[in-house]
């Protein structure tokens, strides 16, 4: 009886192994799930949350931010430093300095949501690399945007 059980165990065991191998071989000839990065990239969804970036006003090209400080206050990690001034002829302030400490940012998105001017958006930049952390400690989000101030 024991010998019979032993043999039956070997047979059912072998069958189970073959069944598993069938799955493995089926996978071997199936289409790969991976993409060959960096030659190919996987699609990014529209809501992808990269580091934040500053949007420009369509008319003036200046940053949309009017330095209300709401994003800096809501940020859980205190990553945002923002300062603004009033250009001579206008009532609203415009940001002169907007620094992001990306080393501390948790990409939570609360700042983007809290901005009354809808001045912030997520970038689609995910392959950030640098030689030292200072490169990401004070990221200047106003870079490349026009400014109403003369320096």
């Amino acid at each position: 009886m024991n010998g019979y059980r032993y043999l039956a165990g070997i047979v059912t065991g072998s069958v189970s192994l073959l069944k598993g191998m069938r799955v493995t071989f089926a996978n071997m000839v199936s289409r790969p799930h991976t993409v060959q990065w960096p030659r190919q990239t996987a699609p990014l969804p529209a809501r992808f949350r990269g580091h934040i970036r500053m949007l420009a006003d369509e008319e003036t090209g200046f940053p949309r931010c009017f330095a209300c400080g709401s994003c800096a206050r809501i940020c859980p990690s205190a990553c945002i430093t923002v300062q603004g001034r009033k250009p001579g002829d206008r009532k609203k302030k415009v940001a002169v300095r907007f620094l992001l400490d990306f080393t501390k940012c948790s990409l939570c998105g609360l700042c983007v949501e809290s901005c009354p001017a809808r001045a912030l958006a997520f970038s689609r930049d995910y392959a950030l690399a640098g030689y030292r952390d200072t490169e990401f400690r004070t990221m200047d989000l106003l870079e490349g945007l026009a400014s109403p101030f003369q320096f």
């Binding site: 192994l17 598993g20 799955v23």
Partner: peptide, 12 residues
């Protein structure tokens, strides 16, 4: 079912 084929019934 593939998961079960691959592992659940596996003797090891």
């Amino acid at each position: 079912p593939r998961y079960h084929d691959l592992v659940t019934g596996n003797v090891i």
